[in-house]
Design a protein around this nucleic acid. Structure first.
Length: 616
RNA sequence: GCCGACGUAGCUCAGUGGUAGAGCAAUGGUUUCGUAAACCAUCGGUCCCGAGUUCGAAUCUCGGCGUCGGCUCCA
């Protein structure tokens, strides 16, 4: 799997459409300035699939303004004026943009000599028509080269991405080298909308977030609860097979715990609490992470090196306060369950343990039909805890675990968290979007803070290494991902309704009940309407809407021959299989379930333009 | 948290100062029918919440809450 890494297109500066996209940003900014005199320019880069420009406008933009801006852009494109490059000295540039009231550009030029080291004390200027912008380029030759574009949305963005700086209006647009590519891209966006887990969550009765209950808190409705139960059952089995010890830990803990762990200090803003008990003398907090609990389990007695590695796992539910604007369906919530594990081991064992986790992670991704994994090794950030020697050891353990497997990986220099270097696995879903998959970290902080030790073979106390890993991450987020990945059409082993039985008429009920019983015996989830029955076609339609894995139509003919008429989910009109022996069908669904097969209507790796939707 | 838009029945939405609407869903009935929407009827709304303006507010103003698109943050 990992060997396919090279197929992934690389974006950013290598994007051949970069000049086109950046040029479109200029044309848009020019159009806005024509329509809204006094507009101040921020920055307007090319991004994946298009471009944006951050602007300070004299008034707030409404969505109705976008067509007007587009129209003005088309005029500029039609005029087909050239993009011309000029050089100005730094001082000239500052004077020029100051005169034109472009404070942000002045701010940019001033920052150049600090950040990038002024190349030759000059700055690049690009002009088309009367529009002049500070810019390194490159651009397309003429505005007429920009043919297939569309403005997409309006959003707020801070100047230089800094919350304390003024907020500008960001206009997003998309541009392609042909109308055909643009149409394909727009079609892809529609596909994403169709798969949106929030819409499918309503339609298929998967989950609900109730305002009165609290935003960011998920109610798993019965259908999705079936998916979760199956996932959890399988997860537990897999972990038992691999030598994990599964535990349960409390949902709240005394303040002492989070003072010691450092959570209150470093993470307190995201924690719910305090809950004042015993007349306010004792404070408790709701757990935001499972690590302290697992450490306490480890420390429940003196540990010998013979017990190591000790792999402690839990489907642990945690609560974190997230700012209102960041919540998003099931993907970003305030209460969620992590498939968390902490592996306590020696430094000698660390590399092998990490390798085992990595192999398990790959198996996970394969099972669910994710493709093209890319592995990142994130090393020590500037602000960090622990000694360089510890970071060396931890990074080496991760690196060697990957090295032994000859897995290609990329290094994200300085991308680790303050207490740990990590391995991240990113994967592609069925429509080519990148998702954050499993992560593995070596925690360099908590073992010190909690003084986590074991007795080594010389009878001495030795500091334990703590490997922290999640595969799903949060069940909420990853199941939301699965909903979109499968477009609601789950593999049979996870499907809430594996088989729907549709009797032709009420007099077919007796045989229908027998079919249901035969399927339920080996544990297949069967839906069978009870009389009085609606029109048969309507019941078929409803079963399809519920995403039943198979629809069995049974009537007199089937009863006579002990057969069923089978409509697999996703089958085209008139594509049912008639006269299938009941016993054969039972064998078939049981096998498909037990093999955890990907669904027949699952089509991974749809080609097409890439889409800016990196979901983490 | 910030910028902008939005909030009307379970869902999708119409209704811009004068007594709250449609389709789907739900419920009751009729229909017994061979592979993607039968027919009739009924039920259903503190128009997000609070305050204000007005003779009168779903509609205008202010505040709050929530949702959506982003920013920031992140599992």
């Amino acid at each position: 799997m990992a060997k396919q890494l090279g197929r992934r297109p690389d974006h950013g500066a290598e994007d051949p459409l970069h000049p086109l996209r950046h040029s479109a940003a200029h044309v848009m900014a020019g159009a806005v300035m024509d329509l809204f005199p006094g507009t101040k320019l921020g920055i307007g880069p090319a991004v994946k699939d298009g471009f944006y420009y951050d602007l300070a406008l004299p008034r707030a933009l409404a969505p109705d303004d976008l067509p007007r801006i587009e129209e003005r852009m088309r005029e500029v494109v039609k005029a087909n004026v050239p993009f011309e490059r000029k050089q100005m000295s730094r001082d000239e540039g500052i004077r020029f943009f100051t005169e034109h009231g472009q404070d942000f550009k002045v701010d940019l030029i001033r920052s150049f000599d600090r950040a990038e080291g002024a190349e030759d004390d000059s700055v690049g200027i690009y002009q088309h028509g009367s529009f002049v912008d500070l810019c390194k380029g490159p651009h397309v030759q003429r505005t007429g080269d920009i043919t297939a574009f569309k403005l997409m949305s309006i959003a707020g963005a801070y100047w230089r991405g800094d919350e304390t700086k003024p907020q500008l209006t960001r206009i997003y647009g998309t541009v392609w080298s042909s109308q055909k590519d643009l149409d394909a891209y727009l079609e892809k966006l529609k596909e994403i909308e169709r798969r949106d887990h929030r819409a499918l969550g309503r339609d298929l009765e998967l989950f609900r977030i109730d305002d009165e209950l609290g935003s960011g808190l998920v109610l798993w409705l019965p259908n999705l609860s079936v998916v979760r139960e199956e996932l959890e059952t399988w997860w537990r089995r897999v972990h038992h097979e691999r030598g994990y010890t599964l535990v349960y830990t409390p949902h709240i803990a005394h303040e002492k715990t989070y003072q010691r762990s450092g959570h209150l200090e470093k993470y307190g803003e995201n924690m719910y609490g305090p809950l004042a008990l015993d007349e306010g003398t004792q404070n408790f907090w709701i757990k935001p992470m499972n690590c302290p609990g697992h450490i306490k389990v480890f420390q429940s007695k003196v540990r010998s090196y013979r017990e190591l590695p000790l792999r402690i796992g839990e489907l642990g539910t945690v609560y974190r306060y997230e700012r209102g604007g960041t919540l998003h369906g099931m993907q970003r919530v305030r209460g969620f369950t992590q498939d968390d594990s902490h592996i306590f081991c020696t430094w000698q064992q660390a590399q092998e343990e990490i390798g085992k986790v990595f192999d398990l992670a790959m198996e996970f991704m394969r099972l669910f039909g994710y493709s093209d994994p890319v592995i990142y090794l994130s090393t020590r950030p500037e602000r960090r805890l622990g000694t360089d020697e510890m970071w060396d050891r931890a990074e080496n353990a991760l690196r060697e675990a990957l090295g032994v497997r000859e897995v290609p990986y990329r290094i994200d220099e300085g991308g680790g968290v303050f207490y740990a270097p990590k391995i991240d696995v990113k994967v592609m879903d069925a429509i080519g979007r990148e998702w954050q998959g499993p992560t593995i970290q070596i925690d360099l902080n908590l073992p010190e803070r909690f003084d986590v030790t074991f007795v080594n073979d010389r009878g001495e106390r030795e500091r334990a290494v703590m490997v922290h890993r999640v595969l799903f991450g949060s069940l909420e987020r990853s199941v939301a991902g699965l909903i979109e990945h499968y477009a609601g059409n789950f593999p049979l082993w996870l499907a809430w309704e594996q088989v729907a039985i549709v009797p032709v008429r009420e007099d077919g009920m007796e045989y229908a009940r027998r079919v249901a019983a035969e399927l339920r015996a080996p544990g297949i989830r069967v839906h069978l309407d009870e009389p009085p029955l609606a029109d048969m076609r309507e019941r078929i339609r409803e079963a399809q809407h519920r995403r039943a894995g198979y629809i069995l139509v049974v009537g007199a003919k089937e009863a006579e021959g002990e057969t069923v008429s089978v409509r697999p989910r996703g089958a085209a009109k008139g594509q049912e299989e008639r006269g299938v022996k009941l016993a054969d069908f039972v064998t078939r669904v049981v096998r498909e379930r037990d093999e955890q097969a990907l669904p027949g209507d699952f089509k991974p790796g749809d080609e097409g333009p890439s889409v800016a939707a990196s979901l983490e």
